[in-house]
Design a protein around this nucleic acid. Structure first.
Lengths: 192, 192
DNA sequence: TAGATTGTTAATCGATTAACAATC
DNA sequence: TAGATTGTTAATCGATTAACAATC
């Protein structure tokens, strides 16, 4: 779409991604028929259709719990806003941070979290704090009505199963990198 | 291991993870026989064996390119160091950051990157900078002998295929969260 | 030796790919 | 109408699970 392409076939898509044309058609058809025989897929329409499947047509109120470097990095990432994720508050316990603003978003004291949740309808909370505090805070969030947690704390959360948790475990990503380096090295050795 | 468990069977492991005992045994046996009939797996030995498979027994020199919030967050994460990933330098173009230190690690000017790479043996580089600069810097890194890139820039890199790239695309993670919320909501609606 | 539990082979299941009839 | 390309069914492939003989 950014390249001004108006229509595209599953074959052309297959060339651009590393996915077979068959799989593209199969996968899309799990959600509906977005193409047209003899024509292919209208790029703009497909983009919107996929956005709708992913729920990107809705908007959510988001808070960031933990306003350290990682929390601030997320607060500064403007493109989330464009996808419908409105960050409206941040929380921390560090007195040096409380009261400050990041991209216009106020950092509040963690003690005020429960009160804040009573007065505001928050769907998503980002957990960007040390793992020691993560579980306790997560429970407060759930009590306060938060339905989904984007968890960056280096721990798995034990929460009621109707709470949606998306983990970003950087250590796992780093291990994968490490494994690929090792495998790559081995591949070389074996060729000798 | 943290809980002081000395030995564990594939069945007990199965209970703790959401993986069948069969799969645990199959998967481990792709790499070797780490257990013992009638006994199970020695936890300490298994931990070390898995570490070795993942390459966590080696040490790597790491630089962080992009010393913004995200770069600093990674620099501050001490546990990476324990896994053998030694962060020895950071780079940025922001004059307010250059010269400062994060956890003792100096932030250097990005212009000095190529020189630095000539004089130091760096295996891994973390890309934590805006997507506009990512590809160009990545090429410099590869020229300088960096073998693996941990890519946090919101873009896919087009690099020689012997360069190992591990992408952390937060927007994809957020879309997954969004999709799960949507699916969850739908599930509820359908029950009505 | 008897019991436990692995390593491994065989059976099942699901996901990917190929093929093609429907149709724009 | 002819050509292109989807949606969808059938064939293939790989991964997961089940079963069990080997062995500690």
């Amino acid at each position: 779409m950014d390249n001004g392409v108006e229509r595209i076939s599953s074959n052309e898509l297959s060339d651009r991604m590393q996915v077979t044309a068959s799989q593209i058609r199969q996968d899309l058809n799990n959600f509906g028929g977005f193409g047209q025989q003899g024509y292919g897929y209208n790029v703009k329409f497909l983009y919107q259709a996929i956005g709708k499947i992913l729920g990107l047509d809705k908007t959510y109120n988001v808070i960031i719990v933990g306003a350290g470097n990682l929390g601030q990095a997320l607060a500064n990432y403007v493109r989330f806003e464009k996808r419908g994720f409105r960050v409206i508050a941040m929380f921390d316990i560090n007195p040096q941070l409380v009261g400050r603003k990041v991209r216009g978003i106020e950092i509040r004291h963690l003690d005020t979290l429960s009160d804040y949740l009573k007065q505001n309808d928050i769907q998503i909370a980002t957990l960007t704090l040390p793992k020691a505090a993560a579980e306790e805070v997560a429970l407060k969030l759930v009590e306060g009505g938060v339905k989904a947690i984007w968890n960056f704390a280096h721990t798995d959360l034990n929460l009621p199963k109707d709470v949606i948790v998306e983990n970003v475990h950087l250590s796992e990503s780093l291990m994968q990198l490490s494994y690929n380096i090792t495998r790559h090295q081995k591949g070389k050795d074996e060729k000798l």
